[in-house]
Design a protein around this nucleic acid. Structure first.
Lengths: 147, 147
DNA sequence: GACTAATACTACCTTTTTGGTAGTGTATGC
DNA sequence: GCATACACTACCAAAAAGGTAGTATTAGTC
């Protein structure tokens, strides 16, 4: 049930953008470098974030990425929805057609409740609050982390 | 971030055991049949549940499985811990050595919070309550469900 | 004590997902 | 028009998920 590197890297990218707010577009290569993430891989992640209207891109020289909205107006839920897509936990919780169980299925109600608990947490956090927390990471040197 | 079939099948198995409580050991083949799950696969799942002390097994003729404790004393958290193992969401939330970030890492604190929200929900539910909910599933016929 | 019913265990296999790379295309500023 | 970025597509390798097969072991029953 682990979250994927997509969400983890994507959140770190957004935190960096939030912290540099106002300084003009940020190069992907800078973020990839400081966060020690593959630039190519990041460049694919960020497409989702742009598609969801969380970041804007500026092409060409002096280009890069900026947040599309103030960080205080971007919820963690939007971020995860954009990066993971679809239901968090289980298909049948959203899509009854995926399972022949009855609507009152006890197991389904358990997973639906878990899904809701997660969404509530994610809805309650904004990128602005997150970015103001402690450090992001040292990230001057050291190996790429393990999953 | 989906939960695996292990947890889903395992929960259904336990719900069945809870509902039949007191009737002696239940055959795995019965549960597999009524839930339309591969018996071989179930037989491997259930090893984890036995190892965690959630069910007891009786070998030989007239054998099967029974809950090791009253369903009201088995939390959903124990069930998921047994079936999924380890941290729910992310390694670094539990194991700082898995990532070179500082202890105050903002991203880590986000995932740690999500993990906690999930655990709190799971801790608050017991198998007894779950088993008393609506139906389990019709499961007389129909195809195996999709994931 | 043989036979049968059931779990216990090990080894393997296939499919899907994840994580990542390579290369080419395209817009923009100078 | 050239350098600098992002945009997009196609692939690929490793890991995890999901499942199957076969054998071993234990416990009742005659």
């Amino acid at each position: 049930m682990k979250i994927s590197t997509r969400s983890r890297y994507g959140l770190r990218l957004l935190i960096e953008l939030a912290r540099r707010g106002g300084g003009g577009p940020v190069l992907l290569s800078e973020i990839a470098g400081s966060q020690r993430i593959s630039e190519k891989y990041l460049s694919r992640l960020v497409i989702s974030l742009r598609g969801s209207g969380l970041v804007r891109s500026v092409r060409g020289a002096h280009g890069g990425y900026v947040l599309a909205r103030p960080p205080g107006e971007i919820s963690l839920r939007e971020i995860i929805d954009s990066l993971e897509g679809g239901p968090y936990i289980i298909r049948c919780a959203d899509d009854p057609a995926s399972c022949p169980a009855s609507p009152g299925c006890a197991a389904r109600s358990v997973w639906g409740g878990l899904e809701k608990a997660m969404r509530d947490y994610c809805e309650s956090l904004t990128l602005g609050e997150i970015a103001r927390r402690g450090s992001l990471r040292p990230v001057k040197a050291g190996p790429k982390e393990r999953a």
